[in-house]
């Protein structure tokens, strides 16, 4: 590609501009969820708020996404050390656990719905589905990126070039971000009562 050369060559600072751009985009995602969670607090304070127990699925899904983060972290370390098997196994485990997270979220929503918590009903349910759903969309974006990384791992020759390490690092950092975001959202929903 002719276009990437600009961002890779013309910078003098220590941080790669693309990495910095990724962090900047985290700020805007944080603002989006900050808006939703503060709207949640405002709405909750105004009364008529249904309290419900979260299905166990969400605990299991939390374990999955934390596990996938750890696996991807090890996979990135393996890639940097040119350890092919650790890189590959870590990526596969991380990818599968990531997918499991989304599937578990889906079954969690189903269970919650069967408890009688409807999207259209009380605002507490609407907020729950909106916030977790929007988060799941961000996770799906991460899964798409992981899929590309997986595809590259299986099709390209294994070379831990600076450029490929950098690209993989971007994907893994995004994944850690949606992981931490989920933990924040879960704790928020559990404890803001």
């Amino acid at each position: 590609m002719t276009t990437v050369s600009i961002s890779q060559k013309n910078y003098r600072s220590k941080i790669h501009p693309q990495k910095f751009a990724l962090w900047t985009s985290f700020a805007s995602i944080i603002m989006m969820f900050a808006a939703l969670t503060s709207a949640y607090i405002v709405k909750q304070a105004s009364g008529n708020w249904l309290e419900f127990q979260l299905p166990r699925h969400f605990v299991a899904s939390t374990v999955c996404i934390v596990g996938s983060s750890i696996a991807l972290h090890l996979s990135l370390r393996g890639f940097k050390k040119s350890n092919r098997s650790i890189h590959k196994v870590g990526l596969i485990i991380g990818f599968i656990l990531g997918l499991t997270f989304v599937v578990l979220q889906y079954f969690g929503w189903q269970t919650l719905f069967s408890y009688g918590v409807d999207l259209k009903g009380n605002a507490s349910g609407s907020f729950f589905y909106l916030i977790t759903g929007l988060h799941a969309l961000h996770v799906l974006g991460g899964i798409a990126a992981l899929f590309v990384a997986l595809y590259h791992t299986f099709t390209l020759p294994f070379v831990a070039s600076e450029r490929r390490v950098h690209r993989y690092e971007l994907v893994v950092q995004y994944w850690h971000f949606v992981d931490v975001l989920w933990i924040y959202l879960l704790l928020f929903i559990l404890f803001v009562k």
């Binding site: 900047t24 700020a27 805007s28 995602i29 603002m31 989006m32 969820f33 900050a34 808006a35 939703l36 709207a39 909106l130 929007l134």
Partner: peptide
Amino acid sequence: GLLSFPVLASGFFM
């Protein structure tokens, strides 16, 4: 823009 437009987006989603 980066800090305020996402909040509008949240409002739009709702």
